[in-house]
């Protein structure tokens, strides 16, 4: 239970790499090997219709969050993807982005249901 007692125990802004749950990242690395190839060039986000329409969606950043284990952040935004596949077309590294999204969704569902990844 996360309780705020008002004594300034604010949530740390740092990415707590050691504490974070990186199971999902490992899960996706296993099932979508091309995912490891991302160089964060941002072409996917640039072309993404959703990213252009909403402030909070950024497919490249989702990847980074995923690698760092910030799953809550991903879960908030992942459903906004329209699956159009433009990101996949512009990706210079040939990452199978739609599969990444699909497996992410599946992994998040499993984590929420406390299933084993």
């Amino acid at each position: 239970m996360n309780q705020d007692w008002g004594y300034g125990i604010n949530k740390d802004r740092q990415i707590d790499f050691d504490r974070n749950d990186r199971r999902l990242a490992e899960y996706i690395r296993k099932y979508v090997p091309s995912y490891k190839l991302c160089i964060s060039c941002g072409a996917c986000t640039a072309t993404c219709s959703t990213a252009n329409l909403t402030d909070f969606y950024n497919i490249r950043r989702l990847n980074i969050f995923l690698m760092r284990g910030e799953i809550d952040e991903i879960a908030k935004h992942i459903d906004k993807c329209m699956f159009c596949g433009k990101c996949e077309l512009v990706c210079p590294r040939g990452v199978n982005t739609r599969q990444v999204i699909l497996i992410m969704k599946e992994g998040i569902k499993k984590i929420k249901q406390n299933e084993q990844l």
């Binding site: 219709s49 252009n52 459903d79 329209m82 699956f83 159009c84 699909l102």
Partner: peptide, 22 residues
């Protein structure tokens, strides 16, 4: 100026409900 996807890719992914919205 771009816009929402037609919904077919979403349908192909099996998400019929999402496609319906688009």
């Amino acid at each position: 100026d771009g816009g929402a996807c037609c919904g077919r890719p979403m349908m192909l992914s099996g998400n019929f409900e999402g496609a319906e919205k688009l």
